[in-house]
Design a protein around this nucleic acid. Structure first.
Ligand SMILES: NC(=O)c1ccc[n+]([C@@H]2O[C@H](COP(=O)([O-])OP(=O)(O)OC[C@H]3O[C@@H](n4cnc5c(N)ncnc54)[C@H](O)[C@@H]3O)[C@@H](O)[C@H]2O)c1
Ligand SMILES: NC(=O)c1ccc[n+]([C@@H]2O[C@H](COP(=O)([O-])OP(=O)(O)OC[C@H]3O[C@@H](n4cnc5c(N)ncnc54)[C@H](O)[C@@H]3O)[C@@H](O)[C@H]2O)c1
Lengths: 220, 220
DNA sequence: CAAAACCTGTTATACTATTAACAAATCATT
DNA sequence: AATGATTTGTTAATAGTATAACAGGTTTTG
């Protein structure tokens, strides 16, 4: 049953499948069953089969899925067949860590430009990435045709900086600040709220664990 | 309708409500309606009312919610009335950023111990937090009665280190590595998969945005 | 005080996601 | 080639989440 629009929950799992298919491929594995994959990615095998089926019949009954075929399919689907450039705004603590990491490995994503208001950082190169001043931001983003930004500025600057990003025609923001920013509806925001996640983990431990030690407790 | 077990989706929003209630309180606001709160936290007002109602009747019809009362209620519910100590394992790029940040602000959470295999880091103090050698880990975690760990070791060490953490009686792991670790069912894992989130954002931009510019696109 | 405006808590409904179950297809083996 | 073992893709059942709608209250206003 091929569909054009895939459920959000499925879309969120695709990069995970892709990553583990890479592992399997590099380990020389030729085929994989939904049950095997389930064990490594910690997603129910029925969910995996259902997820895959949104893209058509990718497997073979009685056999499983051909690793290479599946890998290539997801590579295209996830835009991993070409490099995606993104920018980072706010080269502080967290920004530096992300710059240095730079999503190397299997992910075909690269932070190709960074921006900071601090004149001591602006104009330098950090972990191989040029850091520009804020005045250059709108212009540079347009020149480099970047439409995704990682936002790691202080909380109090999140809204103002985001509005500048809109001016630059940005389409997606990965927001590491604890603020929920207000933006036009056509801009997608992915909030990465680390303090929230940690507090949620603590809440779960205090309120759920005692009762349901039965379930499999892998969250998110 | 008071309940003992709150839906997972609700639990994940509680820290966000708590954070914004703090903002409102500090801004001198006395009362708040679900509609007002909805605008700042970007959660539907009906969802907010439903979330709150799991804890009983916290508001007053025709009036709204008393900010201070609500704040104090969530403070208790979220264990924010006392300090929670957590540990961090793997003081590299990301580990350093998290150590330095240390969830100051409104969150009553503190990283009180860190661990690393690197003998140059072990034995030092980083951002005010003592870094211990791995040999001391099981012991220190037990002494300090820490049962939550932030895991920022290289991917290939994630599983092995996690198993050591189980020995130390850890109950929750915030896993920043791209690996899905295998653990006993009574240990809760919160995966923070940054590469995954970024790839998902890219996928959403490529496959959803064109069609539904209508919706409000705030994810996660 | 009566009327209008407001806002919660809950009921009803719609949507989204997960999982179990199994027929249909393939593969392995004798 | 027939039997048994696998494993998909899908249907059907269940679970979980979000939102609309509104009755039952509170506050505000004329
Ligand atoms: N560091 C962490 O581990 C961590 C964890 C959770 C959340 N966060 C959030 O991530 C954000 C960044 O955290 P951090 O610890 O890296 O902070 P930081 O203060 O170390 O870095 C912020 C950087 O942004 C720059 N900046 C300030 N105003 C700016 C502006 N208007 N435009 C562009 N750049 C500007 C600063 O010069 C600085 O380099 C914060 O919102 C923080 O709450 C950080
Ligand atoms: N840095 C980022 O921005 C980023 C982003 C996404 C994911 N991650 C993930 O987070 C993890 C850490 O990333 P990083 O960039 O900080 O890596 P890093 O290499 O800078 O740091 C890893 C640290 O772990 C220590 N370590 C190694 N083996 C250990 C062991 N067995 N026990 C204890 N400590 C050990 C190392 O000494 C080092 O200090 C990785 O799994 C990475 O994939 C990082």
């Amino acid at each position: 049953m091929v569909q054009t629009v895939i459920p959000k929950a499925t879309a969120k799992r695709l990069p995970l499948y892709y990553r583990y298919l890479n592992f399997l491929y590099n380990a020389g594995k030729k085929k994989v069953s939904s049950t095997e994959l389930s064990e490594v990615v910690k997603v129910d095998s029925a969910t995996i089969r259902r997820d895959f089926s949104y893209f058509g019949a990718l497997g073979k009954r009685g056999y499983g899925y051909d690793v290479e075929t599946l890998l290539n399919f997801f590579k295209k689907t996830l835009n991993q067949d070409h490099l995606t450039n993104v920018a980072l705004v706010g080269v502080g603590n967290l920004g530096h860590a992300l710059l240095n990491y730079n999503f190397q490995q299997t992910n075909n994503i690269r932070i190709s430009a960074a921006f900071d208001v601090n004149p001591e950082i602006a104009g330098t190169i950090q972990s191989g990435v040029p850091v520009y001043a804020m005045d250059d931001m709108v212009n540079q983003l347009k020149i480099q045709q970047i439409d995704i930004v990682i936002l790691t500025v202080p909380a109090e600057d999140a809204q103002a900086v985001s509005e500048q990003l809109i001016q630059a025609g940005i389409k997606g923001i990965m927001n590491f600040t604890p603020m929920r920013i207000s933006l036009p509806a056509n801009v997608r925001v992915q909030n990465v709220d680390l303090a929230n996640e940690l507090q949620t983990l603590i809440y779960f431990l205090d309120h759920y664990s005692k009762k349901d030690k039965l379930h499999h407790l892998q969250s998110s």
